[in-house]
C-alpha cells in the first residue's frame, strides 16, 4: 500500500495520552500535569477551563510533534490507535507516524490563519494540495452544505467576516477527510448566536461523517463529552451520552 493509497474512513482512529506533562523550560513551571485521556473515534468533546488552565497546550500536544513547542518540555506518552473497520478488506497502511498524523488529524487554529488574498476555496484546498492527498469531494460537499459555504467559496478570505472565516477554516480542516479534528477556541471571536450554531453544526458533522472533534474553549459550548481543566490538571471528564467514563 502506498503512502496515501487508503481511505481514512476505513479505519477507527483513537488518541491516547498517558501521564502527559508539559513544563516550561525557561521558568520550570508545570503547565500540564500528568493528564490521561482516551479519545475514541466519533467522540465530540470539549476541553473547558479558564485562561492558563493548559487546555490548548494539552490539546495541541495530541496533534503530534509538529505542534510541540520547542520552548516546552513534554513527558509521558501520546499514542494513537488505528483499527481497520474490516480487517480483511482494510490492511493497515504501511506508513510512519508522521504520515498517519498528517492524514488522520486536522487542526483549526484560534485565529483561523487563512491567507487573505486567496479565495476561500483555495484556502480550503491548500493543505491537501501541499500534502498531495486526495480531497473527498462528497465529504467536502456535505461540509460546505452544513457550514453554508457555497456562496462564499470564490470570495477572498480577507473579505470574509470573522464568522465566515471560521467556517472556511473548519472546512479546510475537513478537506482531507481526517478522522479527528482539534479546534482551538473556535468561537472566541463570534457572537452568542453563532457560538451556538458552531457547536450544533460541529455535532451534525460528527454524526454524519463520524469525525472525532476535540474543541478547546473557555466558552459555554456544548459537546457530549466535557473535559474540565484547571491549573494544568483534568478535574472532570463527563459524558452526557453515556459512552465515557467520568474521571474525578
Amino acid at each position: 500500500m502506498s503512502k496515501y493509497d487508503f481511505n481514512p474512513s476505513d479505519f477507527n482512529f483513537g488518541i491516547h495520552a498517558t501521564d502527559l506533562s508539559i513544563r516550561a523550560k525557561e521558568t520550570g513551571r508545570q503547565v500540564v500535569k500528568s493528564i490521561t485521556l482516551n479519545i475514541e473515534q466519533g467522540t465530540y468533546a470539549s476541553i473547558h477551563g479558564p485562561s492558563g488552565a493548559g487546555k490548548t497546550l494539552a490539546a495541541t500536544a495530541l496533534l503530534g510533534t509538529r505542534m510541540w513547542n520547542p520552548d516546552l518540555e513534554y513527558s509521558g506518552a501520546v499514542g494513537y490507535s488505528l483499527i481497520p473497520k474490516n480487517s480483511m478488506d482494510n490492511p493497515l497502511p504501511d506508513v510512519n507516524l508522521d504520515n498517519v498524523l498528517e492524514r488522520f488529524m486536522g487542526f483549526v487554529p484560534q485565529r483561523y490563519d487563512l491567507l487573505p488574498k486567496m479565495k476561500a476555496v483555495d484556502n480550503i484546498h491548500l493543505p491537501s494540495r501541499m500534502k498531495q492527498i486526495p480531497v473527498d469531494k462528497k465529504v467536502l460537499d456535505r461540509v460546505y452544505q452544513q457550514l453554508e459555504l457555497d456562496d462564499l467559496l470564490s470570495t477572498k478570505a480577507g473579505k470574509l467576516s470573522g464568522g465566515e472565516q471560521q467556517r472556511v477554516a473548519i472546512a479546510r480542516a475537513f478537506a482531507g477527510n481526517p478522522r479527528a479534528i482539534i479546534l482551538d477556541e473556535p468561537a472566541s471571536a463570534l457572537d452568542p448566536e453563532l457560538k451556538d450554531k458552531t457547536s450544533r453544526v460541529l455535532g451534525e458533522l460528527v454524526s454524519q461523517l463520524g469525525t472525532t472533534i476535540i474543541m478547546v474553549t473557555h466558552e459555554n459550548l456544548h459537546a457530549p463529552r466535557r473535559i474540565e481543566m484547571t491549573k494544568g490538571e483534568i478535574i472532570a471528564d463527563t459524558a452526557t451520552d453515556g459512552r465515557h467514563a467520568v474521571k474525578p
Binding site: 509538529r66 498524523l101 487542526f107 487554529p109 491567507l115 493543505p127 501541499m130 500534502k131 479546510r172 482531507g176
Partner: peptide, 12 residues
C-alpha cells in the same frame, strides 16, 4: 506565520 499555518495543517 504563513509557514506555521501550513505546517499546522499537517504539511511537513
Amino acid at each position: 506565520k504563513e509557514i506555521a499555518m501550513i505546517a499546522s495543517q499537517g504539511v511537513k
